[in-house]
Design a protein around this nucleic acid. Structure first.
Length: 705
RNA sequence: GCGGAAGUGGUGAAACGGCAGACACGCUGGCCUUAGGAGCCAGUGCCCGAGAGGGCGUGGGGGUUCGAGUCCCCCCUUCCGCACCA
C-alpha cells in the first residue's frame, strides 16, 4: 500500500487538501463520500449520522478517470451495477457561463460569477441568479441594507445538518443580496440571491435560475414573486403560452422563443449557437461536470496502513518517506488519548522522526489508509503474496489477470467495485500492470439480511454468526444450506429453519454410499423391488437418473444455479434411498449412480464428499486418492436418451391426458395414438378439430372449435 | 422526484413461450421404538367430491399466441440505489 501510495503521489494521483469532509462522531474518523449512506447520511460502518468538518486530508484522484470509468467496454458486468456507477460518476454536459455583476452605489461591479448550466439554450429565461450561501463572493456583493439578513441566512445554513439541507420536499428559502448581475446574452440586469438549494460542492456553487424551465427555480420564483419567462415552447404551444409549471422539454421539436436572434431555432441548435457565441465573446465555454469526487482515503484510525509521509519541522514541508525506508510500521506501544481518537497522535515513538530531506526534526503523518485501499488491489497481490521485491509480480500479472469471474455484492457498486476499477487504471498508468480493468465478468450475489429483514450490522444487533451453525451441523451443511436457500443473486432475510433438511440430505447420502445392501435400518420393505419392476429395469432407472442429474448439474454450474444443483442431488439421493436394501443396490448401475453422486457433491460439499470417497475406495480395496483431483465426469448421451417419452396432451391449451410414446415417432403416428385415448375422445366429443400442434416430441395440443 | 430489481402455496423456492408449485421447511397421519427433538413411509395450492374426477389458480387489468408465471401495454405493492447535482 505504501509503495503504491508513493507512486501515486509522484504521479499526481495522491494529494493532500483542505476540504469539507464527512466525519463520523462515533468512530471519530472521516469517511469517503461513497461510505456515507442514505438520506440520513449515516456512517456505513456504525450507522451514526455524520457531520461536516473542514479538514486537511489525503485524496486519491479518481476523478481523473471519470470518463474512462463510464465505459464498460470489454467487461461483462450486471446492468444495475453499471448504472449505479454511471449515476455516481454523474457526467453532465453543459456550459460554463460568466455573468458580470452590475455596478451600483455600493459595488463597482464587474465581479465575475461563473455558473454551470446544462441548458445554455434557456439563457434568455434567466430572471435571477442564486449563489450557495458558502460562495466566496457573498460578503463582497451584499448591499449594506441586506447585510444583516444575508449574514443571518448564511449562519443558519451553516448550522443546518446535511439532511435538513438536502431534503427535497421542503419549502425553498433564500435572501437577495441587493446586487444585480448582467445576463451576457441580452445585457439584462437580474437580481442575485443566496439560497441553500444551491450546493457549494457542485458545479461552481452558483446558478443562473431559469424558473420557466427548471422545477426548483420555478418553486423559488413562485415563492418570492420573481418573473417567470417562457423561452422554450413545444410544437403545440404559442410563443407566450403561460407556464403553470416548469417546462424542461428537450423534445426534438421544442423550439426557442423570446430568445432574441435565437428565437425559432430548435433547442439543440440554439444550445450550440449560444455556447459558440458566448465562447467567441470570452463569456462562456462548453464544460463537463461530474458528481463524483476524489476518493478521501485518510482515516484517523490506528489499525490501517500508515500513510508514508512526514512533516518537516523546518522548511521541507510534506516529505515522502523514501522507498528504501518502507514499510512505515505501526508502533507497538500505543498511547491511547483520553476521550478516544487516533492513538497514533499521542504515541511519541511513532510521531517523532527525522526529515528524509534535511535530517532535521519531523513528525509522522498519523492518518492511516482507508481499508478499501487494501481491497482495491489484493487480487493482484494474491498472485505472489510472498514477493519481497515488488508489490505486484508483472509476469504473473500478464499470465493471470484480469480476474475472469469476480463475485461481489451490489452494495459495493460505488465503493469496492469502483475503487478497484480506478486502481486498475492508475496502476496501469504507473506501469506496474498490463490491464485497465480488474474484473472481466462480475456476478452479484444476493445479500443475506438479518432475521429482521434489515442489513446485518453490529449496531442493529442482528448479525448472525455462522460459526454456531457450523459447530452444530458442520461446514458442509451450512454451505449447502446457503446454496439451497434460493438463487445466488438473490438475498433475503436470514432464516435457518430449513437447515435440518440439508442435514438430513447429507445423512442420506452417507447412508446410500456406505450402506448399499444393509437392512439394519429396519425398512420393512427391504429386500424387494417395487411391485412390477424387474432388476434390469431398476438398474436402468438408476443409471438414467444419474446421468440426467449429471447433465443438469453440469449446466447449472455454468449458470451459478447452486440451489437447483442441490435439489437435483437430493432427487438422485431420494431415488437411491428407494432402492437401498433391494437387489438393485448390488448392481453396477447402483455403483455408478453413487460414484456420480459423490463426484457431483464434491464441489458443493467438499468435506463429506472426500470422506465418503475415501471410505468407498478403502472398502473396495483401492488405494486412496482425493475426490478433488478427479475430473468432472461426462454424462452418457445414450443413457440419457429415454426409451419412452411421457407426452402431455392438451385440448385447447388445457392438459387433458398423458400418453407414453417411443422417441422419434412421426407426427401422424403420434397423432394416431393420441386420438385413440379414451380421455382425448371424451374431450373432443361434439367438437371439430381445427389443427394439432406438435411441440418437438414434448407436447401435443389439439385445437378444437 | 429520478433510476433499477422483484411480486408464484403457510414458508424458502422450481419451471428453453409448452404438464405451475420440482426440491426443501413446516404441518397431518402411519410405521419402528421403553422413549424420541432420531429414522422410514404416505399426504399436503384453493374449492366441490367418499372416490373417480371436475372447477379455479403465478399482485390487478388489457393484449399478442394454438398455448403466457414467462413476451407487450397500463396500474398497484415491496425492496434497492441516487436524491435541491443546476
Amino acid at each position: 500500500n505504501q509503495w503504491i501510495f508513493l507512486q501515486f503521489l509522484r504521479a499526481g494521483l495522491a494529494y493532500r487538501q483542505m476540504a469539507p469532509v464527512d466525519w463520523c462522531p462515533k468512530d471519530q474518523v472521516v469517511l469517503a463520500r461513497e461510505q456515507v449512506e442514505g438520506v440520513d447520511r449515516v456512517c456505513w460502518r456504525c450507522g451514526t449520522q455524520v457531520i461536516k468538518r473542514d479538514l486537511e486530508q489525503w485524496f486519491f484522484r479518481i476523478t481523473k478517470y471519470a470518463d474512462e470509468l463510464l465505459s464498460f467496454e470489454g467487461i461483462d458486468w450486471p446492468e444495475p451495477v453499471r448504472l449505479m456507477q454511471t449515476n455516481w460518476i454523474g457526467r453532465s454536459e453543459g456550459a460554463d457561463v460568466a455573468f458580470h455583476t452590475a455596478p451600483s452605489e455600493h459595488h463597482e461591479g464587474g465581479a465575475v460569477l461563473r455558473v454551470f448550466t446544462t441548458r445554455p439554450d434557456t439563457l434568455f429565461g434567466a430572471t435571477f441568479m442564486v449563489l450557495a450561501p458558502e460562495h466566496r463572493l457573498v460578503a463582497e456583493l451584499t448591499a449594506p441594507e441586506q447585510r444583516e439578513a444575508v449574514e443571518a441566512y448564511v449562519a443558519a445554513a451553516r448550522r443546518e445538518t446535511e439532511i435538513e439541507r438536502l431534503s427535497t420536499d421542503r419549502e425553498k428559502t433564500g435572501v437577495p443580496l441587493g446586487a444585480d448581475a448582467i445576463n451576457p446574452v441580452n445585457g439584462e440586469r437580474i437580481p442575485i440571491w443566496i439560497a441553500d438549494y444551491v450546493l457549494a460542492s457542485y458545479g461552481t456553487g452558483a446558478i443562473m435560475a431559469v424558473p420557466g424551465h427548471d422545477e426548483r427555480d420555478f418553486a423559488f420564483a413562485t415563492q418570492f414573486g420573481i418573473p417567470i419567462r417562457r423561452v422554450v415552447a413545444g410544437p403545440d404551444d404559442a410563443d407566450d403560452a403561460p407556464l403553470d409549471e416548469a417546462y424542461p422539454a428537450k423534445d426534438e421539436d421544442a423550439r426557442l422563443v423570446n430568445s432574441g436572434p435565437y428565437s425559432g431555432q430548435p433547442w439543440a441548435a440554439g444550445f450550440a449557437a449560444i455556447v459558440a457565441d458566448l465562447e467567441a465573446k470570452g463569456q462562456g465555454e462548453p464544460t463537463v461536470t461530474y458528481r463524483i469526487r476524489d476518493w478521501l482515503i485518510s482515516r484517523q484510525r490506528a489499525w490501517g496502513t500508515p500513510i508514508p509521509v512526514v512533516y518537516c519541522a523546518a522548511d521541507c514541508g510534506i516529505v515522502p518517506v523514501p522507498e528504501s525506508e518502507l514499510p512505515v510500521l505501526l508502533p507497538d506501544d500505543f498511547v491511547y488519548p483520553e476521550g478516544g481518537g487516533n492513538p497514533l497522535e499521542t504515541t511519541e515513538s511513532f510521531l517523532r522522526t527525522t526529515c528524509p530531506q534535511c535530517g532535521g526534526e519531523a513528525r509522522r503523518e498519523t492518518d492511516t489508509m482507508d481499508t478499501f485501499v487494501d481491497s482495491s488491489w489484493y487480487y493482484w497481490r494474491y498472485l505472489a503474496p510472498q514477493n519481497a521485491d515488488a508489490a505486484i509480480d508483472r509476469a504473473l500479472d500478464e499470465r493471470w489477470m484480469p480476474v475472469d469471474q469476480y463475485t461481489g455484492g451490489a452494495e459495493h457498486a460505488v465503493m469496492h467495485l469502483l475503487y478497484s476499477r480506478f486502481f486498475a487504471k492508475a496502476l496501469n498508468d504507473i506501469g506496474v500492470i498490463g490491464e485497465r480493468e480488474p474484473f472481466k465478468r462480475l456476478f452479484n450475489q444476493g445479500q443475506i439480511l438479518g432475521a429482521d429483514g434489515e442489513r446485518m450490522s453490529k449496531s442493529r444487533g442482528n448479525v448472525q454468526d455462522p460459526d454456531e451453525l457450523v459447530g452444530r451441523y458442520g461446514a458442509d451443511t451450512v454451505r449447502l444450506f446457503l446454496m439451497f436457500m434460493g438463487p445466488w443473486d438473490q438475498g433475503g432475510p436470514w432464516n435457518p429453519s430449513g437447515i435440518e433438511g440439508i442435514n438430513r440430505f447429507l445423512r442420506r447420502v452417507w447412508t446410500v454410499t456406505l450402506d448399499s445392501s444393509g437392512q439394519e435400518h429396519g425398512n420393512p420393505d427391504a429386500g424387494s423391488l417395487p411391485a412390477g419392476e424387474d432388476l434390469a429395469a431398476a438398474e436402468k432407472t438408476l443409471r438414467v437418473a444419474a446421468h440426467r442429474t449429471l447433465e443438469g448439474v453440469t449446466a447449472d454450474h455454468d449458470g451459478f444455479r447452486w440451489n437447483t444443483i442441490v435439489a437435483k442431488l437430493m432427487e438422485l439421493t431420494n431415488l437411491l434411498m428407494k432402492y437401498r436394501g433391494t437387489p438393485a443396490a448390488d448392481t453396477a448401475g447402483w455403483d455408478e449412480a453413487v460414484r456420480l453422486l459423490l463426484l457431483m457433491l464434491a464441489p458443493v460439499a467438499p468435506h463429506i464428499a472426500e470422506e465418503l470417497w475415501s471410505r468407498r475406495l478403502a472398502s473396495a480395496g483401492g488405494s486412496w486418492g482425493s475426490i478433488h483431483t478427479e475430473v468432472w465426469p461426462a454424462f452418457d448421451e445414450s443413457v440419457v436418451a429415454a426409451e419412452m417419452i411421457e407426452l402431455p396432451v392438451q385440448v385447447n391449451g388445457k392438459l387433458r391426458d398423458k400418453v407414453s410414446v417411443a422417441p422419434g415417432l412421426a407426427q401422424d403416428e403420434i397423432e394416431a395414438i393420441v386420438m385413440a385415448q379414451p380421455k382425448v375422445i371424451a374431450n373432443l366429443e361434439g367438437k371439430q378439430v381445427v389443427k394439432v400442434i406438435h411441440v418437438g416430441g414434448r407436447l401435443v395440443n389439439i385445437v378444437v372449435r
